[in-house]
């Protein structure tokens, strides 16, 4: 059984079809990077996997639970799915420790000591054990994103979703966050990462999925998809991402 099974997933906003029938399986322990131009639907795909967006059609099954079943306990299902956002979304009214313990306390009903123990262990994991008492506004973007990762990990998720986790960061802070994600991948976490970081995709991903226009155009081992893409659309996209200055006016499709 795959950790994530997506079948015929469609999503429309009004008359705009953002996802036009996606089929995707993610095996347990696999790291899948989803790449593609903006507007290709990759973030919407990720948000459909934990039902932050309600799919318009198709099914999503995570860890054996079909989330698109109308009778599913969505709150229980989301506990098993960690999500990391582009804009971190830390809770500004809580300290770092509060951010990492609040859902453990209120959702998993762990007692205070247990929740704090788990929080400290996960903050240690992301290299921020010394920041427990700080408020998010006092942290750099990279530190905030690592706290957000610790917050998700503290719920013991079966899969982790990353929605462009480094896109809002200053370039010199990207490395710390990617380092934490690489460590997670090495520990065998099942991960789906929407990203523009091609070097991360090449080195860490087991599989790269290229999306454009709401469909999966091609997928496969990173070396093959990134170094030797089959499709013209993939080639155009990669050429632009890997060497932005090289794009010629004629290639830009707006």
């Amino acid at each position: 059984m795959s950790a994530i099974e997506i079948r015929g997933l469609r999503k429309t906003f009004g008359t705009l079809e953002v996802l036009s029938g996606i089929d995707l399986d993610v095996e347990s322990g696999e790291v899948v990077c989803v790449i593609g131009p903006s507007g290709s639907g990759k973030s919407t795909l990720l948000r459909c996997v934990n039902l932050l967006e309600e799919p318009s059609g198709g099914t999503v099954t995570v860890d054996g639970v079909e989330l698109t079943d109308p009778d599913v306990d969505i709150d229980a299902a989301r506990r098993r799915i960690g999500m990391v956002f582009q804009s971190f979304n830390l809770f500004p009214h809580l300290t770092v420790l509060g951010n990492v313990t609040v859902a453990q306390r209120k959702v998993l009903k762990r007692d205070k000591a247990e929740a704090e123990r788990v929080a400290r262990a996960n903050l240690e994991r992301v290299g921020l054990a010394d920041k427990v008492d700080s408020y998010p506004e006092k942290l750099s973007g990279g530190q905030q994103q690592r706290v957000a990762i610790a917050r998700a990990l503290a719920m013991d998720p079966r899969v982790m979703l990353f929605d462009e986790p480094t896109s809002a960061l200053d370039p010199e802070l990207v490395g710390d966050v990617l380092g934490v994600m690489r460590g997670l991948a090495d520990e065998g976490m099942t991960m789906v990462v929407v990203t523009h970081e091609m070097s991360f995709a090449r080195e860490v991903a087991d599989r790269v999925v290229f999306m454009d226009g709401g469909v999966v155009v091609e997928q496969g081992a990173p070396d093959r998809v990134i170094a030797n893409p089959e499709h013209e659309r993939t080639r155009t996209f990669l050429a632009r991402v890997l060497d932005p200055a090289a794009a010629r006016v004629g290639e830009v499709d707006g």
Binding site: D75, M83, N89
Partner: peptide
């Protein structure tokens, strides 16, 4: 809105 989304993604109910 990201605040509610983050809370929901951690398994909190709408009310919680």
């Amino acid at each position: 809105p990201g605040q509610a989304e983050a809370a929901r993604s951690l398994g909190m109910s709408r009310f919680r």
